[in-house]
């Protein structure tokens, strides 16, 4: 009876688990963005010193709870050698956050190329996409409009999915709330084609 009831309890109160990929070139601010998200959404979480964020080797994970949904973040390394690992995560992800360093005009085309390669992948069909123009706190960075212009041929490739662009500063934490909340709404809307990952009840 105890097993029965404790299992029932877990069944009734389990959260819907979703997985969100954070992609982008190296030094775009993915890890900082993840740390900022964790700090803002998890009460009592003392984030790491954002000045000490270094290159991600492998991946960082983060978890936030929004009511009955739980978002798990996979922040993958963005270096060119590590980009070949991205597509291993596509089939199990429920949303994509693509971070662009809008202060780095030289590599914006490279970022665009990686983005195009990612977005046409068939295992990502219909997955909500959030494009972030990061580092808006820096002087002389590209505005959201000009970043949009670079990534403009989006409509044909993006196809049938929720898509949004946003200007953020991961370091200062501007625009983190709005982005994550928008993404959570889209994930819930997309739940028919991408159902939440069920944790097994033991």
């Amino acid at each position: 009876m105890y097993t029965l009831l404790s299992g029932l309890w877990k069944y009734l109160f389990q959260k819907d688990e979703f997985f969100v990929l954070i992609l982008g070139l190296d030094n775009a601010g993915k890890t900082t963005y993840l740390e900022q998200t964790k700090t803002k959404f998890n009460k009592g979480y003392k984030g790491m010193n954002l000045g000490k964020v270094t290159t991600t080797v492998g991946l960082n994970i983060g978890k936030i709870d929004l009511g009955k949904t739980r978002l798990n973040f996979w922040d993958l390394g963005g270096q060119e050698e590590l980009q070949s690992l991205w597509d291993k995560y596509y089939a199990e992800s429920h949303a994509i956050i693509y971070v662009v360093d809008s202060s780095d005009r030289e590599r914006i085309e490279e970022s665009k190329a990686a983005f195009d390669k990612m977005v046409v992948n068939s295992s990502l069909h219909g997955v909500p996409l959030l494009l972030l123009a990061n580092k808006q706190d820096l002087q002389g960075c590209m505005s959201l409009g000009s970043v949009k212009d670079v990534f403009n041929p989006i409509p044909q490739v993006v196809g049938d999915r929720d898509c949004s662009t946003e200007a953020v500063s991961a370091l200062r934490g501007d625009g983190v709330y709005e982005g994550i909340n928008w993404l959570a709404e889209c994930i819930k809307r997309n739940v028919v084609s991408r159902p939440p990952t069920q944790k097994e009840i033991t």
Partner: peptide, 10 residues
């Protein structure tokens, strides 16, 4: 199997 199986338990 370690899965929770209410029918089995009942």
């Amino acid at each position: 199997s370690n899965l929770w199986d209410p029918v089995l338990i009942v």
